[in-house]
């Protein structure tokens, strides 16, 4: 049913820290890997080995330059479904394939009933839905619904693949409907925000802003030792050799 359920008490979602994200794309690649085999399988690619390789991914990492001159900085920006509370991607669906779960707020596409009309992707302001040409259906982030409740997995693995893969801990998973949850506290402490709130979709996922720069106060230290010292100790020479060998 594509009418929206009553607001769910449980609101599972992600909190993405734009301060810590280094833009390594580990979340995107692990997402692609997990979802090529799980709920979203197949997650097909077009022309994978040709001149125009592209395919269906559920998570994309942009890198932006923000601000000007000495104040400018790079901000890496992962973008995926925000599991909105009142999203039009669900209500526009003519078949009922697109739905929001009343139990935990996850927004899913039923792969067995989607007709691939693409209307839901038009209705999403966040570009979170990607049509799978190989499968003829719409694909989107499932919040790894096939991991988070999976009792055959170790407890620490029962989080979305992107959260598990992130090497910098920039992605947090939890219940944003519970004000006492770790993610809710994090959002409160770090002033987490919504993307494009003016659309009124009420995203569950939150983003944490980059922290204020500290390098203005720090006086640059003079470089104490020349970078390439002459032949130092045997140990130095050994490490120099290792470094050279490894970088070949």
């Amino acid at each position: 049913m594509t009418s929206l359920p009553e607001a769910s008490a449980k609101k599972l979602g992600l909190v993405i820290d734009l301060d810590t994200c280094v833009g390594c794309h580990a979340c995107a690649t692990s997402c692609k890997e997990w979802n090529s085999n799980g709920y979203s399988a197949p997650l097909t690619d077009d022309d994978a080995h040709g001149g125009d390789p592209h395919g269906t991914w559920l998570n994309r990492v942009h890198s932006y330059e923000v601000g000007d001159g000495a104040e400018s900085r790079t901000v890496n920006f992962p973008r995926s479904c925000l599991h909105c509370e009142t999203p039009a991607c669900v209500t526009v669906c003519p078949t009922g394939a697109s739905y929001k779960r009343a139990s935990d707020g996850i927004v899913l596409v039923n792969p067995d009933t989607c007709i691939g009309c693409k209307l839901c992707s038009w209705a999403c302001p966040y570009g979170a839905r990607e049509y799978d040409h190989g499968d003829g259906t719409m694909k989107k982030c499932t919040l790894c619904v096939d991991r988070i409740y999976n009792e055959t997995m170790a407890p620490e693995d029962r989080v979305p693949a992107c959260v598990r893969a992130c090497p910098t801990g920039a992605r947090h998973f939890g219940d944003l409907g519970d004000p006492q949850s770790a993610v809710s506290i994090l959002v409160a402490e770090r002033a987490g925000f919504d993307l494009l709130p003016e659309f009124g979709y009420n995203p569950v996922n939150k983003y944490l802003p980059p922290r204020a720069r500290k390098d203005r106060e720090v006086t640059p230290r003079a470089i104490e030792a020349p970078l390439r010292a002459g032949p130092g100790s045997n140990a130095d020479r050994f490490f120099a050799w290792v470094d050279k060998a490894l970088s070949r």
Partner: peptide, 16 residues
Amino acid sequence: ATGLGHLGTVRPLDPP
């Protein structure tokens, strides 16, 4: 769209 406006203009650097 990125919520980064308070830091200045937002320009694409590396595409995803």
